[in-house]
Design a protein around this nucleic acid. Structure first.
Length: 240
DNA sequence: CGCCAGGTTGTTG
DNA sequence: CAACAACATGGC
C-alpha cells in the first residue's frame, strides 16, 4: 500500500506540474529544461557542468548556483583544463555567489582532480566501472556526499540511483510515507524498490519533488490547492 | 529584515 | 551513533 503511495504521489505531481526534464542546463541567462537534453547521453563537458552544479547547489538555492554557472561559462572556465589550472583562491572568488565558497572551491578541485585521473587512462573510466563502484569512488572524495554523488550518477551518467534531498524527505514525511529519520540509503532503497527501475522515472520524480517542494511543500507549507492534500497527514487547511 | 536554500564534514557526548 | 556546529551568499 505504501508501495502504491510512492507511485500515487508521482502520478499526482506529474499531473499537476507536467514533465520537468531534469537536470537543467544553464544557457542564455537562464536555466533550461529541455526534453532533447534530458534524454540524450551527455557529453563530457555537460557531465562536468552537472557535477559542478551539484556541488554549487549544496544547501544553496539553485538561483545562486545558476548564476555562478553562467559566470563560469561566460568566463570560459567551465571546463576541465581551466579548473585544473585555477588555484583554490581563484575558484573561490569565481564561485562566491554560491556561498560556502572556500569549501566548494576545495570540492571542485577534488572533483576535477579525480576526473583528470580517470581520463588520464591510468585508471578505468568512471562510466566503465560498475554503478556501485562508481558511487563509492565519488563518495570517497572530500565534499561529495550521497545526494551529490547520486545527482551526478543519475543525471550525468544515467545510472539508476534515486536522489534523496531535503524536499524528498519533507514531502514523504508529511504524506506519511516515511518516519523522516531514515538513513539516506535506506530511504533510497525503499523508493527505488517501489518504482520501476527506470532512469527516466527517477529523473522525473526527483524534479517533480523539487518543484512541489518549492511551490507547496515549503518549510512552512502552502497547502492551498496542494495536489497531495487528500493523502497528506500534515495537511493544514489554514496554511496559505 | 529575518528566514531559507536541490548538503557535507568535523566534533562531541 | 545522534546531535550539533561550521561553512556563506543572495533571493524573497
Amino acid at each position: 500500500m505504501t508501495l502504491d503511495k510512492v507511485s500515487l504521489v508521482y502520478d499526482r505531481l506529474l499531473e499537476r506540474y507536467g514533465r520537468q526534464y531534469w537536470w537543467p542546463i544553464v544557457e542564455d541567462n537562464e536555466s533550461r529544461y529541455l526534453p532533447e537534453y534530458s534524454n540524450r547521453e551527455k557529453t563530457g563537458i555537460e557531465k562536468l557542468e552537472i557535477a559542478i552544479g551539484a556541488i554549487l547547489t549544496q544547501n544553496t538555492s539553485w538561483k545562486n548556483a545558476e548564476q555562478t554557472l553562467l559566470e563560469l561559462k561566460k568566463k570560459g572556465v567551465l571546463n576541465l583544463e581551466s579548473l585544473l589550472c585555477l588555484s583554490h583562491d581563484e575558484i573561490a572568488v569565481l564561485i562566491k555567489k554560491s556561498g560556502y565558497y572556500n569549501q566548494k572551491a576545495k570540492k571542485i578541485k577534488e572533483l576535477v582532480g579525480f576526473i583528470q585521473e580517470k581520463l588520464s587512462g591510468r585508471i578505468e573510466q568512471l562510466s566503465m566501472s560498475g554503478s556501485d563502484k562508481a558511487r563509492n569512488e565519488l563518495l570517497s572524495l572530500w565534499g561529495i556526499g550521497r545526494e551529490t554523488a547520486d545527482s551526478i550518477l543519475l543525471y550525468a551518467y544515467d545510472m539508476p540511483f534515486f536522489v534523496i534531498d531535503a524536499y524528498t524527505r519533507r514531502i514523504f514525511y508529511r504524506t506519511g510515507l516515511i518516519d523522516g529519520d531514515e538513513e539516506y540509503d535506506d530511504l533510497r532503497f525503499y523508493i527505488e524498490s517501489s518504482l520501476p527501475k527506470d532512469i527516466a522515472v527517477y529523473k522525473e520524480y526527483h524534479g517533480l519533488l523539487v518543484e512541489h517542494g518549492k511551490i507547496h511543500c515549503r518549510k512552512t507549507p502552502s497547502c492551498r490547492a496542494c495536489p497531495l492534500a487528500d493523502i497528506c497527514v500534515y495537511y493544514e487547511s489554514n496554511a496559505m
